[in-house]
Simulated scan of single mutants.
Amino acid sequence: MTRRELVVLGTASMVPTRTRNHNGYVLFFDDDAILFDPGEGTQRQMTLAGVSATDLSRIAITHLHGDHSLGLAGVVQRISGDNVKHTVAVSFPASGEPWVRNLVEASAYDHRGRLALQPLPPADGAVVVPRVVGERGSPPTEVTPADASVLTARALDHRIDAVGYRLDEPDGVSFDPAALAAAGVTLGPDVGRLRRDGVLDMPDGRVVRRAEVSVPRPGQSVAFIMDTRLCDAVHDLADGVDLLVIESTFLHRDVALAERFAHLTCRQAASVAASAGVRHLVLTHFSQRYAEPAELPLAFEREAREVFDGEVTVAADLDRVPLPPRRRAGGVVTGRR
């Protein structure tokens, strides 16, 4: 079974608190481990969460405010110190490239790791963020495999250039063991050939077709939306995802502050999830103005549930949030993998 879960490293907004580190989130999705928004202290939080630098396949930064990026310096030096052999891509809004380069070169270290910087140009629609492959010693190559999950970015509406991210797994099929047995197909190489070729020639002259022994398997999806006002891109990124990780800086009683500083309230984030058909809502990026533990967790959950009836997590540092169980075509839930 492959790993599909969100590991929460930090959940504070501009000012960290005694219980909440600056932002940081690692999405494990099969062979990918994407570190989103490494705020100050991320390297230590990775250690506490049991996340290794060698796990990371990509760093994805939404914007270059410090609570979303100051930890980049420590993380890239950790990648070097741990002698990570594969290329780690770093994606970010193109206007933030000077700050990214400053962070990557913030102090002296051995530069044993290899990064591939991917500045994302401004765009009206979704931008596909290519994968980067290649071991140290060979040139890094950008690829977009047809059968792999696709990461896209959309411009958001913040005080500086910011993007949100969405990861989509392609739709596929799952084989039905009973149908395979009835057709005389044994597990192993024959199933691999059937998956690859779509047909299988049997010893008795019959032809077994993939569609006869399989059921549709809708791909899973995750959206990651940090600092922004409400805008079309927020709704597009969240549309129908299994897991939505979204900023919820203020309670709605402070909506004027949210508008002033270009953030979302809890009610706005939950309303987006409700209208988009999100299955599991993860609220994070909380202002230090709310007392803990007396107010924050209960107040944010209560406000979210006023408008959203799906699963809600008010994230805390070091939480682990699994993706919801996989859905079959037609909305029937099956096992996660």
Rank of each mutant, 00 (worst) to 15 (best):
L64E: 08
P130L: 09
R267D: 06
M202V: 13
L318H: 15
G39S: 01
A181R: 15
V234F: 06
R101F: 00
A299L: 14
H235Q: 09
V8N: 09
R326S: 05
T11V: 15
E259I: 13
P189G: 04
V278A: 03
D157W: 02
E311W: 05
P293C: 04
R229I: 00
D147Q: 14
G205F: 12
M14N: 15
S275G: 06
S107K: 06
A270F: 02
Q118S: 04
V272K: 00
P203A: 12
E301W: 06
D32T: 11
A123C: 12
V163Y: 02
E292L: 13
G81N: 07
L318Y: 12
V215G: 08
Q43C: 08
G10H: 06
G164K: 00
S57K: 10
T11Q: 03
E247P: 02
V104K: 05
D168S: 05
L180A: 10
T141F: 04
L194A: 11
V213Q: 01
D30P: 01
Q45C: 10
A123S: 15
G24D: 03
A153S: 07
L117W: 02
A153F: 05
G310A: 05
E306V: 02
P216R: 15
V208Q: 07
R20I: 07
G205T: 14
F36D: 05
L318P: 08
R131A: 11
P145H: 05
D236L: 13
G113Q: 10
L298G: 15
G96E: 01
A123I: 06
H86S: 14
D110G: 10
S57P: 01
G198Q: 01
N83T: 08
L200F: 11
D239S: 14
G41K: 00
D242H: 13
R210P: 12
G66I: 00
G198F: 01
R337Q: 07
G66K: 00
G137T: 07
L194E: 12
L156V: 07
V321D: 05
R195F: 14
R328I: 04
H68K: 10
F29M: 07
V104H: 07
E292V: 06
I79C: 08
P38Y: 00
W99S: 07
T11Y: 04
E247T: 01
R136L: 06
D37V: 00
H158A: 15
L64G: 14
W99C: 03
P98N: 11
V207S: 14
V76S: 12
F92T: 06
R131V: 05
C266H: 01
A73P: 06
F286D: 11
